[in-house]
Design a protein around this nucleic acid. Structure first.
Lengths: 131, 131, 131, 131
DNA sequence: GTGGTCTAGACCACC
DNA sequence: GTGGTCTAGACCACG
């Protein structure tokens, strides 16, 4: 399904959270779709089940998935504009990164190109997923 | 001078690194300007000197400051195009943030506006510094 | 495993960095091989764990090893041509040493012989490792 | 006469030692030539006299200069093959550097080219100095 | 007075 | 068990 970098200094469970977030964001995992069970995913990735569970718990608390006892975890349907709190964080992060990028010599054009690239990528993903 | 969240999951020294980086980037701390001494800052923030030094050392290895035994720590003048490695990290981060921002409902226009805002801010800083 | 000079003017952690670097360079410690744990090495060398960690962290930032919380520290596989920055330092050092060696009476032939010797050593190492 | 990098993490007195060594090695300062007085050099470089003296002391103990009370410091005439001890150190250093250079991807040819360059440079220096 | 090193010992996060 | 962070406090090297 996807790859983890066991060498990375980033904890495995965080990598999992990020990857799954990306899959949800890019609509590979659709709203209300069931996520793989903790045990399955653990076996598939040859990783400790506790680690998977920690990731799922984190995703749940961030509002990306919801869990139903005895049935599993599912993708939380998006509520646009809902999480103003999350948005605020993202905006702050963007500001920081922008100033750092500029300081390191990137031009606004380069940054914009990057944004365009990501935007295009998203469209491509959805179309691929839809087709 | 600035605030730290001692309870945060993020290590104190990392918070320090970030804050100081921002001050340097935004030209509040100018090139070759002396940073507060390890001991002073430690006392001021009621934090152990070792923690400050860890932050300073990190900043040094990232090329933002330089430290001289017996004299103090100073802001390292920018070397344009120098840190391709750092830039690579920043680009990756930007991509991730862009897709997350879009997912949360931000439009490319909003993001661009944010970039413009930061860019303007930088210009103001420099003009102030130059004048 | 190896010896340190606790009286030396050179800091212990730097000596450690050098020694470990040499072990990695000469393929005694192979790619992705686990280094001794911070605590073990500390006990073995009767040195404070913090000192070991400082060495490990330095090696990590220089790209020779990577450390993962809860799992240990490992030798980082070589990325050819990666560290142009490191190379630059090495070239400068070589130049200085060459002029000093010549001053002290070494001939270019002697120096070259030394280089050849080291080169042969490396080949032997690899062939041993490969066989 | 020459430049010091006050920003460098290397102590000033060590930089002085290195620079003066280079001047002696490259025959810019000839055998038995008088070095500038501590006070003069200190004023010229706007540096603490103590720092100069420390450098001179170091050079003396390494056998590069000798001091005569009340008269000053002078370049020590070379005794070829004399300092087998120094040579041994240099050879060890060369070996270390060679293996590191090779590890980082330099070829024997590149290293040899560097040696040739330094050798040529030395000849040029002497001829310049002689002319 | 400056940064830098080192120790001893505690506690946390991860797996 | 692993690495990572932090404190308290001592001592050194530098200018």
């Amino acid at each position: 399904m996807f790859e983890l970098d066991l060498r990375s200094r980033k904890p495995i469970y965080e990598q999992l959270v990020e990857k799954l977030k990306q899959l949800i964001i890019h609509d590979v995992l659709k709203a209300d779709e069931k996520l793989p069970s903790v045990r399955d995913l653990a076996q598939q990735l040859t990783i400790n089940p506790n680690t998977i569970q920690k990731a799922y718990r984190e995703l749940e608390s961030q509002g990306y998935i919801y869990s139903v006892k005895g049935r599993g975890s599912f993708v939380h349907p998006v509520e646009k504009d809902a999480n103003e709190e999350e948005l605020k964080k993202v905006r702050e992060e963007l500001k920081k990164l922008f100033s750092e990028a500029i300081y390191l010599g990137m031009t606004a054009e380069e940054i914009h190109a990057l944004l365009y690239e990501v935007e295009r990528g998203k469209e491509d993903d959805s179309s691929t997923a839809t087709s």
